[in-house]
Design a protein around this nucleic acid. Structure first.
Lengths: 176, 176
DNA sequence: GACACTTGTTTGGTATGTCAAACATAAAAA
DNA sequence: TTTTTATGTTTGACATACCAAACAAGTGTC
């Protein structure tokens, strides 16, 4: 009932997550260190915004700075950035490789949800993808058949997501 | 490069989506109509917040009001609410029934991403779920085998989502 | 009719996250 | 050394989204 407020309570905001990713990205070329203007350039926002945002990220222990304004991820920040990247990657791969969602759309969608996926869900999706590439012939077959199914699906032409609602009943009838 | 800003550009905010859902929910018992205080009670926020938020929703054409402050979804708002509900439902079902994510976690995760899933992605996920319950024996087998795989997965104990990063390389090698 | 209750709106406050513009300082070029 | 440029911070502004509290306008009861 109250689940909808969990969104607000999410550990990382989208903005915060991308600040961490930007620091990680810039840091790759500078031994883990980044400057405010690098981060701003990476995110395409102003230095002022980054300056203010970093204050909050520091206070919450995601990033650290030295006396020359150099910024790096804290261990906690590294873990968080790593988790976000992994979730994005696995979601994007699932969308584009299994669901056959166009590359760009998969990129956009995975980027939107990357920081919202819980650890258990992320892990299970990793398992699922690992299973699908495990060499199990069944997995290969099923992916191939889904591609065909999609092309032949009687609902293919009319199918909009709003149909998903009745689908749920179908799914429950199927005892799934 | 600029993909991360798509989050801000999303058609519906999380808050807006749940206002629409609340109006829909309340409306079920009152012929489609809802009052500010009903919506506030449903969302567990103050009437003042709802009053202000409805102004924006009206301006953008998601909701309409009559002269007695009664609120209902516009056709556009109905479509949007329907789409959000469907996306949430199909994601939740996928998480809990295919990935075996615990019910509550599936509820939370699907609620967080429901309004962020694009139409193509939602549709493809519907197709995928439909395929999995299509009666195709392959689909049944594969779901059963994934459950086993999960229990036997060598990474099962150590697996954290951060491992997903290397997984992606695996996936690419597999030509997936 | 008078009083209390419900309802919707408004106001002032907080918090996040962006901008532009002004500012101070540090680094590089002349 | 002086000047220019680059960098980081601060300020005032705007937008979203919440709160509490005050307020106005109906609704109901006695």
């Amino acid at each position: 009932m109250e689940t909808w407020k969990e969104f607000e309570a999410n550990e990382l905001t989208h903005s915060a997550a991308h600040h961490l990713l930007a620091i990680y990205e810039v840091g790759l070329e500078y031994g883990g260190w980044a400057r405010v203007s690098d981060i701003a350039r990476e995110l395409n926002i102003t230095r002022g915004s980054v300056s203010i945002n970093l204050r909050a990220l520091k206070k919450r222990g995601w990033v650290e700075t030295d006396e020359h304004h150099m910024v790096k991820l804290s261990p906690k920040g590294q873990k968080a950035a790593q988790a976000v990247m992994a979730k994005k990657a696995v979601v994007k791969t699932f969308l584009s490789s299994v669901l056959n969602v166009p590359e760009l759309q998969a990129e956009i969608d995975s980027c939107k949800v990357e920081h919202l996926i819980s650890q258990p869900t992320g892990e299970q999706l990793v398992h699922f993808m690992r299973f699908l590439v495990s060499g199990d012939p069944l997995a290969k077959q099923v992916l191939a058949r889904f591609k065909n199914f999609h092309d032949q699906c009687p609902e293919s032409k009319t199918c909009e997501v709003c149909h998903g609602h009745c689908l749920i009943e179908e799914l429950q009838h199927a005892g799934l």
